[in-house]
């Protein structure tokens, strides 16, 4: 294929690694060497992740975590444009500023829908296994070129701005990857099996209503622990839904699946373990409380969890 996921990672790696050069040189940052090192190492894992032996990547990861743990990651100065400057530019560029921003989703969608199976010279244009992500990467790259032309900026100016944003996110940028890692370790260590066994011992197996409650709440809770409904679904469904709902009470698997997965999503809305949805945005939006997004989501999540339980119970009665 012409454009693989690896190409996107190289783009990410270049952005992060180049940015770290300014961090090393940023005298206003009290910890500029350790902060610079953090972003340099992160860039290296993105650039060369598939080449470096896993053990050494693991060591790099632990060094990054240690830098954060010992307070070595600090903010610097980012020479932001003053409000007056932004005002001037804005009046000149006006609504044209929206064009590159809106091109990102539009081009991504075009890539996903129309370039999905396009082949050039017998090879796929976009990695068929990662069409969405590769499309997103290409879309942002094209939007970047357009916005550089529009604002007459250099690539370095763009990297400096991305450094400003990335450093506002800071350690949270690493968290989604680390949580996915933890998920893998939990799975190999058998945490899922232990949890579903424990839940199996506490629910009354003769009451359809309480089985439904246990399954839906279990999906939500286990998703909160794992940070991912996809990890919770096989465990909870094999532990509760298959033996009790589907086999014992003869409930339709399609109903169980749709409503069970949504119960898991309610859990996703309530957990810091789903960092890419809940913690990274809080950092990205400069919120003072890193759990603010979760706090806002909890009421909706609980109401919908109750809705799922009720809907599943009603549907199982009809089956």
């Amino acid at each position: 294929m012409w454009l693989s996921m690896e190409a996107v990672y190289i783009f990410l790696g270049i952005v992060v690694t180049l940015g770290s050069v300014w961090t090393f040189a940023d005298r206003s940052n009290p910890k500029r060497f350790t902060s610079g090192l953090f972003y340099l190492l992160y860039g290296v894992t993105l650039l060369f992740g598939s080449v470096i032996p896993p053990f050494y990547t693991g060591v790099l990861v632990l060094i990054m975590v240690a830098i954060v743990g010992f307070g070595g990651l600090k903010l610097g100065k980012y020479e932001e444009a003053s409000p007056e400057e932004r005002q001037q530019h804005r009046q000149r560029l006006n609504n044209r500023l929206f064009i590159p921003a809106l091109l990102i989703p539009i081009l991504t969608v075009i890539g996903v829908t129309w370039l999905k199976n396009v082949k050039i010279g017998g090879a796929f244009l976009l990695d068929p296994n990662n069409v969405t992500l590769v499309s997103l990467g290409v879309a942002t790259f094209m939007a970047l070129l357009i916005s550089m032309a529009m604002t007459r900026s250099t690539p370095f100016a763009a990297v400096k701005e991305s450094r400003r944003l990335l450093e506002t996110i800071g350690w949270a940028a690493l968290l989604p990857q680390m949580l996915a890692t933890l998920g893998t370790i939990f799975t190999t260590a058998g945490v899922g099996a232990a949890v579903s066994e424990w839940i199996g011992t506490i629910i009354p197996t003769h009451s359809l209503f309480w089985i439904v409650v246990a399954y839906c709440v279990g999906m939500a809770l286990f998703t909160m622990i794992m940070g991912n409904a996809f990890a919770a679904f096989p465990v909870m469904t094999a532990g509760i839904a298959v033996p009790l709902l589907i086999q014992q009470f003869g409930v339709d698997a399609n109903h169980v699946a749709a409503l069970g997965m949504f119960s898991g999503y309610c859990g996703t809305l309530m957990t810091p373990m789903a960092a890419n949805f809940n913690i990274v945005p809080a950092a990205l939006l400069d919120l003072r409380d890193q759990h603010h997004v979760i706090r806002v989501q909890v009421p909706t999540a609980l109401i919908l969890l109750a809705f799922n339980i009720a809907a599943m119970y009603v549907v199982t009665l009809m089956d």
């Binding site: 996921m5 996107v8 990672y9 783009f11 990410l12 952005v15 992060v16 894992t45 993105l46 992740g49 598939s50 470096i52 032996p53 896993p54 053990f55 050494y56 990547t57 693991g58 060591v59 990861v61 632990l62 932001e80 444009a81 932004r86 530019h89 500023l97 590159p100 921003a101 990102i104 990662n130 992500l133 997103l136 990467g137 942002t140 790259f141 939007a143 970047l144 916005s147 550089m148 604002t151 900026s153 100016a157 763009a158 990297v159 400096k160 701005e161 991305s162 450094r163 400003r164 944003l165 990335l166 940028a173 989604p176 990857q177 996915a180 890692t181 893998t184 370790i185 190999t188 990274v280």
Partner: peptide, 27 residues
């Protein structure tokens, strides 16, 4: 395992691709 899973899950970092454009436009 840390290293392996960290590398496999690099796709979670894909939001970084949007930062140069968005940062520039914000400026």
């Amino acid at each position: 395992q840390f290293g392996k899973a960290f590398t496999t899950n690099r796709y979670m970092a894909v939001f970084i691709a949007t930062l140069p454009v968005i940062g520039l436009l914000e400026r």
